[in-house]
Amino acid sequence: MKKYAIDFSHSTIGFSVRHMMVSRIHGTFESYSATLAVTDIEDMLDAQISFSIAVASISTKNFDRDVHLVSQNFFDADLYPKITFISTKVEKIKDKLFALHGDLTIKDITNPVVFNTTYTGNVINSWGQEVHGFHAETQIDRRAFKLVYNTLLETGGVLISDEIDINIELEINPI
């Protein structure tokens, strides 16, 4: 199997959630590590992928909100400092489109998830290095991971939706 490293300056682990049911708040995790190994990067069927994300690296571009998210009210980063993902299976849907199955762990609660994953191509960069791109997305119900903080609004509805969209953009290079 060939191993790959993430180009962190050209990759993003992001999320979005509906706020007050009228807009979306977007955020990223700025610190993470990953292992990626696969025989054929374009086929992906035997891919072994794992991620470890530092919860305290969350950024929504609002300091007070970020502090709240890492507090005991939400992620409780002091007690649960990492979010992890370990792949369990890859299914080819069609050319360059895959279903990446795996176990997502947040607050020591593990649930299966499926990322709709697209191989976006490869190039040789200006330094002669092989570069491959991927886009992956899924939606989780935050309550399944005991992320239950919320506030009822006077106008009806809630402050934060239960559904969280996760979007990942990766550029990787062979090691």
Rank of each mutant, 00 (worst) to 15 (best):
I25K: 01
I25T: 14
A54L: 12
A77M: 07
V55K: 02
F74H: 10
F29I: 05
T60L: 07
G27Y: 04
F74W: 12
D66G: 10
D78M: 09
S71G: 04
A77W: 08
V67W: 00
L79K: 15
F29G: 01
S71T: 10
D43V: 12
S50Q: 11
F75R: 11
T60E: 06
A47M: 09
F74K: 08
H26T: 09
D76E: 13
T60Q: 01
S59I: 02
V70E: 03
I58N: 06
V70G: 03
S31A: 12
H26A: 07
I41F: 09
S71W: 07
Y32K: 05
L45T: 15
S52W: 03
S57W: 04
H68W: 07
T60H: 06
Q72E: 15
G27V: 06
M44T: 07
S23G: 03
A37W: 00
V70P: 01
R24P: 00
N73F: 12
L69H: 09
A54N: 10
A54Y: 05
V67S: 14
F29V: 04
N73Q: 14
Q48P: 01
D40C: 10
F63T: 11
D78N: 13
S31G: 00
D43S: 10
I25D: 00
L45V: 06
I25Y: 10
Q48V: 13
H26Y: 15
Q48Y: 02
N62W: 13
H26G: 12
A56T: 10
H68I: 05
T60M: 10
A56D: 10
L79P: 00
F29Y: 09
I58F: 02
S57P: 03
E30Q: 12
S33K: 13
D46N: 14
V67N: 12
D43K: 14
A34G: 07
L79W: 00
D78I: 12
E30I: 02
T28M: 07
S59R: 11
D40Y: 05
F51R: 04
D78W: 02
R65V: 04
V38D: 11
L36V: 15
